[in-house]
Design a protein around this nucleic acid. Structure first.
Length: 309
DNA sequence: AAGACGAAAGTGGTTGA
DNA sequence: TCAACAACTTTCGTCTT
């Protein structure tokens, strides 16, 4: 349940108490309630052979939000028995059936379409199933609250996906989701903010470190450079250089500095392109990094070493 | 010629009166 | 609701390699 939370968002402590009876996770140091009303997924019984299992098990297949009816469909029965009823009763049956059909199609047809779209986008982005599931859940809640009205279905799907990515710390930039879904970046950002606010979804500010591995991969850099970039990034966070800045810009700048130090130079433009920011932003962050972390010395040292060789 | 640098003006979003 | 403002982008001219 809480596998995404390793640290207390209030004080950063890793001393967390999991209280299964209350369904809460609490920070031991500052008492902050990190997660409440969580669900205990464990079994309260054991089975020693299949027979006992058969007897004690009392649920079916797991529910899933990626099916429009969560895998639990209801439909009214077929026609076979109806003709034994009297005409009055028969008409009542047809009316019920008709309304059942109408009510369930209103929301569910929308969901069906939306979840197909969600599936398409998320497989395009190669997102893990958990993220897709969460996005489906968010979308379902949005539909139930009538938040889709006035917005295009696709943009809400994209917003839900983005929110889900953020929650699971598998960051995709707005640009990537925009490209995959064909929705304008600003539009996604808007609906994302709207639905998270309306649904009261708390999103931890995204951590620039999460972006580094993907940037490294697309620039084909060495693991050493990646480690270096993360180091720099962590120092920057300690020096409070990161708050209020765009996480991608900071990640990009750290990576750029790391390439310089490790003699794997990439141009500012190359780094800027994969990070989805401009060179100017990298330059600004980069200058701050040099100034605040006294990294210029290190770079000079590395350069001198390179010259000696 | 390409890349790095920096100034200046513009953009979209947040905040606080 | 509007103005101030912070972050970021775009554009462009200059400097360095």
């Amino acid at each position: 349940m809480s596998k995404y939370i390793k640290k207390c968002p209030e004080c950063g402590s890793i001393n967390l108490i999991v209280n299964k009876d209350k369904g809460e996770i609490i920070c031991k140091d500052c008492g902050f309630v990190i997660e409440e009303r969580m669900i205990d997924f464990s079994q309260e019984w054991r089975e020693f052979d299949s027979e006992q299992g058969e007897k004690r098990r009392r649920t079916g297949a797991p529910m899933t939000y990626t099916k429009f009816d969560r895998g639990l469909g209801t439909d009214m029965g077929g026609m076979s028995d109806v003709y034994q009823l009297q005409s009055k009763e028969r008409n009542k049956y047809f009316r019920l059936r008709k309304w059942h059909h109408r009510v369930s199609t209103a929301i569910e047809r929308n969901l069906k379409l939306a979840l197909a779209e969600l599936k398409r986008v998320s497989s395009f982005l190669k997102l893990p199933p958990a993220v897709e599931e969460e996005a489906a859940r968010i979308y379902t809640m949005a539909v139930q609250r009538g938040l889709v009205r006035g917005r295009s279905m696709e943009s809400v799907v994209a917003g839900a996906l983005y929110a889900s990515c953020r929650r699971h710390e598998v960051p995709r930039t707005l640009d990537e989701i925009s490209e995959a879904s064909g929705i304008d970046k600003k539009e996604i950002g808007r609906t994302y903010r709207f639905i998270t606010r309306e649904l009261g979804i708390r999103i931890l500010p995204s951590n620039p470190v999460d972006y580094i591995p993907r940037f490294v991969a697309s620039l084909k850099l060495s693991p050493e450079t990646q480690t270096r970039a993360v180091e720099i990034l962590e120092k920057a966070q300690k020096a409070e250089l990161t708050s209020g800045r765009g996480p991608t810009g900071i990640a990009a700048a750290s990576l750029y500095v790391a390439t310089l130090i490790n003699n794997e130079k990439r141009t500012q433009r190359e780094v800027a392109d994969v990070a989805g920011v401009t060179e100017v932003t990298i330059r600004n962050r980069y200058k701050e990094l040099l100034r605040e972390l006294k990294l210029s010395k290190e770079i000079k040292k590395k350069l001198e070493e390179a010259i000696e060789k």
